[in-house]
């Protein structure tokens, strides 16, 4: 039995079996989807985009003007990233992204969203108390920094370009990409400074 009283795990297994038996899904396709998001598509993609923007002023301009083709230049695009907008953090303005209604997130550059991004705690509070949420996540910004929260209520997906950390003038693009964390591209974190633990 896999009725409403059974565990979610049993219901998930039963549903998959039913769909395979009925010929609606191909088990090999399921494995390919999981492998894609566990191994191929994740925040290291977005880190490449940010590191390029930090080192190439022309690319930065293209990214901030029309992000979807700029991101496609590096080979990233597709599902849940069809319509990208990049927003750049500065000392004056800090961007934070949320989807209060569900879990919209730029998959091609960040992969699947973390659990906290989808949680009621984050979705409910970051729009009304962004500084409090940032504090939960260990980020304290100067009181003079404006916070711009972006609620992803349509099919536009937002990528935050964090500020380039100080002391990184000598680093190449690969080394810079290592400093770009997932959270810094959501706006709930900052890029790491060289030597800081990941």
């Amino acid at each position: 039995m896999a009725g409403s009283g059974t565990s979610v795990e049993a219901r998930a297994a039963a549903l998959e079996e039913i769909l395979v038996e009925k010929g609606y899904v191909d088990p090999a396709a399921l494995d390919a989807i999981i492998a894609t998001y566990e191994h191929d598509v994740g925040p290291r993609n977005g880190a490449r985009v940010v590191a390029r923007a930090w080192t190439d002023p022309g690319y930065r301009q293209r990214l901030l003007t029309d992000a979807t083709p700029a991101i496609a230049e590096l080979g990233f695009g597709g599902r849940q990233g069809e319509h990208m907008v990049a927003v750049e953090n500065t000392p004056d303005e800090h961007h934070v992204v949320v989807c209060t209604l569900c879990s919209c997130y730029p998959w091609p550059v960040l992969g699947l969203p973390p659990t906290w991004y989808k949680s009621a705690a984050y979705r409910s509070r970051v729009v009304i108390d962004p500084r409090g949420v940032l504090a939960d996540l260990g980020v304290t910004l100067p009181a003079s920094t404006r916070i711009a929260v972006h609620d992803s209520t349509a099919e536009v997906r937002y990528l935050v370009v964090p500020m380039r950390p100080p002391g990184t003038d000598d680093l190449d693009e690969d080394a810079l990409a290592e400093l770009v964390t997932r959270d810094s591209m959501i706006g709930t974190g900052l890029a790491r400074v060289p030597g800081e633990a990941s």
Binding site: P114, S124, V127, I128, L137, D183
Partner: peptide
């Protein structure tokens, strides 16, 4: 439609 609700506790990083 959760925006602005209260009482869910802190955001737990991962």
């Amino acid at each position: 439609d959760l925006g602005g609700m209260m009482g869910f506790g802190p955001v737990v990083p991962e």
